[in-house]
Design a protein around this nucleic acid. Structure first.
Lengths: 335, 335
DNA sequence: GTATGAAATGCACACGTGTGCGTTGTCAAG
DNA sequence: CTTGACAACGCACACGTGTGCATTTCATAC
């Protein structure tokens, strides 16, 4: 059933030498003769030796692992993040370990606990808004980067984006086109990015001296069905909004479906701005104006921060990196 | 820098008892008094004890890990697979470990090696067509499931889909609508699914007594840019095809872009069938007729197979499970 | 021949967890 | 009081790897 795997001890017995010599040979220790090294390497190859990461992790007191805890890997943004981070980790000699929290505090706890049991050297997490105290306590001993979202219960560095600015620009873009009734479907205010994005929407209205009609606002959890429901509700308001901003990639998918179901022509009857910039944005007709998220920039910043912390060469206080999303104007807001 | 983490030994010292008693207490051994168990649990909680998975993995000779090696997590199909598998693994008490091979044999080798160093109990892999001998040798000691694709160099169970049937149905669907010039953009024939899908296309033509014009075929690596290039090339053939089948999800994304760039109206000037069924298929206008892949069914089969192998309760020979994709007809092939 | 040193290798332990086996303490039956 | 039975716990080792230290071998210098 469970296969016995060859160890350095097997190699040692095979060659009639001590296992410590094998260990040194494989690690290219200068005290070992070239001849012995050669024989050891050959034997390792022949016997199919593969180092045991667990044993190694125990010997040193750290694992070359970095944990990534995100809501759902099926989300285009997070899958791009995971891919980029995995690549960077590999380059730095680390292995990335991915877990899905499903935006559920208990699942999040279990998954983070699994990461801690694996003794990850650092964690990159997009915390749920209801992050448990026990989860925060769990994360305390290791360098943590709060990615995208942040929680007051967590300490550690922060990598975020300028959500407020992005949404202000998106709103200003629509206002400049003469829209006066702009619907907004975003995430709940207790998710910090939800509040931030809403602020951008509000600021733009305030700057334009335009009052905000509460009936054009929908703040929900970032699920596709809620996006669909919310958009349907906003479109039913009378007078109907002439433009719509959707403030989350999940909500965008659901929302676009609802707009189609309503039979509205974009952008003539309804202008639309989405959040997140998956490849298929350009395939829609008309193509979708959207807030493009700086994935690479954010992952690069996060990785640099966490590696510095792991290496011990980082300032005492928490560092905050804010990356700037860009509004990409396409057909869905054409005049 | 590297935090010292509390161990059962710390708890033992804290309570003035032996570490073996702590171990037994935490594992609810009947030989330990309820009072001691209570104290141990309390102390574990207070000291923030988190079990060391590496040490545990060494004590037993297996890790509760299952490896998943796929080309790219950004692909909608594979991210859905990863999500589903992770969930099932958790339910079964396992932890999934994900690696991207990037469809590159050397990367594949490195990543599989990392999995084997982590001592995964089993591996689910979508092998690259050029899978190295060394990679195959690496995988030999553990139960392996070849997922979607398969390689002659590997042994072990196989979970695939009936690609030929799916493509035959897709082709028949177009033939039934009167199309005589059907372009086909698919993956290279040395990828087994590429050959299988092409066969479906060919079989349908043969059954209809229709000759296949080689100029309408493009067989490439599954990259978006190749999809774009190939479609552009096929559309330039004179007479141009009236319908197009794209036999890979990556190629579909690139191909749709090329069709848009050519300014063709779907389905009037060109009918289109895609492969893979991401959520955004329904958001296109017209919505995209596509081969829907049985993700859940395949993951369920793969997980059952690998758990049986790990548990030792599986037949000697390799098992093959073939799941059936379904053609979902939408607007892009409307008449 | 002996001392000196360098090169190459073996011995023994540590890391954290779990378990077989021996030991202690307690209580009841003889 | 002795014996046995049983509950509760400690001792010691194993898993695979790496490393400090001691040991061996061998050549060179005195």
């Amino acid at each position: 059933m469970h296969q016995r795997r060859t160890t350095i001890k097997d190699i040692a017995v095979h060659l009639g030498i001590d296992h410590s010599t094998v260990s040194r040979a494989l690690n290219d220790n200068p005290n070992i003769s070239e001849e012995t090294k050669h024989q050891v390497r050959q034997a390792a190859l022949r016997l199919g030796y593969v180092a045991n990461a667990s044993a190694r992790a125990m010997r040193y007191n750290h694992n070359a692992l970095i944990g990534l805890a995100i809501p759902d890997i099926r989300n285009d943004f997070y899958s791009a993040v995971a891919r980029a981070l995995a690549e960077r980790c590999n380059r730095a000699g680390f292995q990335m370990v991915l877990v899905n929290t499903d935006d559920h505090p208990e699942v999040e706890y279990r998954q983070v606990r699994a990461l801690m049991e694996a003794r990850v050297a650092g964690v990159l997490i997009t915390p749920t808004p209801e992050l448990l105290d026990t989860t925060a306590k769990l994360l305390a001993p290791v360098p943590t980067v709060q990615f995208v979202r942040q929680s007051p219960k967590l300490s550690g560095d922060i990598v975020r984006m300028d959500d407020t600015r992005a949404m202000r620009e998106a709103t200003e873009h629509l206002l400049a086109q003469g829209h006066k009734r702009i619907g907004y479907v975003g995430t709940r205010k207790d998710i910090n990015v939800g509040q931030a994005r809403l602020n951008g929407y509000l600021e733009a209205h305030a700057a334009a001296g335009l009052a905000v009609d509460e009936r054009y606002l929908a703040l929900v959890s970032p699920r596709q069905t809620f996006g669909s429901d919310s958009v349907a509700r906003l479109l039913a308001v009378s007078p109907a909004p002439t433009a719509l901003i959707i403030g989350s990639s999940e909500l965008t998918i659901g929302g676009l479906g609802a707009i189609q179901a309503a039979g509205l022509t974009i952008p003539r009857e309804l202008a639309v701005v989405g959040y997140g910039d998956p490849v298929w944005c350009r395939l829609l007709s008309p193509s979708l104006t959207a807030v493009q998220l700086p994935v690479d920039e954010m992952v690069e910043a996060a990785e640099a921060l966490i590696l510095d912390r792991i290496g011990g060469k980082a300032p005492a206080g928490a560092d905050v990196r804010s990356c700037r999303p860009t509004l990409v104007v396409r057909g869905s807001t054409a005049t």
